[in-house]
Design a protein around this nucleic acid. Structure first.
Lengths: 113, 113
DNA sequence: GGAGAATATGTCTGTCAAGGAATATATGGG
DNA sequence: CCCATATATTCCTTGACAGACATATTCTCC
């Protein structure tokens, strides 16, 4: 999860992923289309591969990269858990009040930690 | 999008978000529950706020942080665009072949870029 | 208005990652 | 085998950021 997020959190890497969404691409073509220098593309692809976001397949002397489904499925599943957010949001004020009360009672000389 | 991903890509920040999923929390309580030092929590919350992931609400001298729905909705929407990935995946080989052929014809002295 | 609690901010340090340029490694063709 | 193409790897410099610690700010209450 963290690996997936970290891999996607870099602008050029996200552009690469968006491009690969339309289908597999060789390094040179990614470099062309996104106007990035080839070594950078290779490095970003290595990063994406390390995070499990892409798979490689050699074709002659080219390497064709392609998105892997799993991480995106996991990300979708993770995000789903937050769907409740854009629904009811107000019954939780009670919880806050409870928390404050509980913390009030616990008031002791706890170090700042 | 990038801001959202970058904010979530840090382990402790993700833990904070996961905690806030259960409802709003004051800084001190986050610090307690996650065993993080208070200044770090404040900084992470500042980061999350800068990315628009949380909103603050003062309650006495406490600051109660709470998740905002929009970024999560956007993330869910973005992820949805990749749902096609865990479906058909093989008709794209044709596209690759086409690409290779096209690149073959274009073969000229283009700088390495 | 002063004390204490809750939170924010500043400084320092170490680490990590990205971009640039050069170079190494494969791969196919004549 | 040597050359050209495609890609990967290395070295360097620079900037961002997380953690630790100390300190400032803000609020409440007496």
């Amino acid at each position: 999860m963290i690996a997936t997020l970290a891999a996607l959190a870099e602008p050029n890497r996200l552009r690469i992923v968006e491009l690969l969404r339309d289908g597999p691409r060789a390094v040179g073509e990614i470099s062309e289309r996104l106007a990035l220098r080839q070594p950078q593309v290779s490095k970003h692809l290595a990063h994406l591969k390390g995070a499990g976001l892409v798979a490689v397949r050699p074709v002659a002397q080219q390497r064709v990269y392609q998105l892997r489904a799993e991480p995106f499925a996991e990300l979708a599943a993770w995000t789903e858990r937050y769907r409740a957010l854009w629904a009811e949001r107000f019954d939780e004020l009670d919880a806050v009040v409870d928390d404050l009360k509980r913390r009030e009672k616990k008031k002791k000389g706890e170090p700042t930690r």
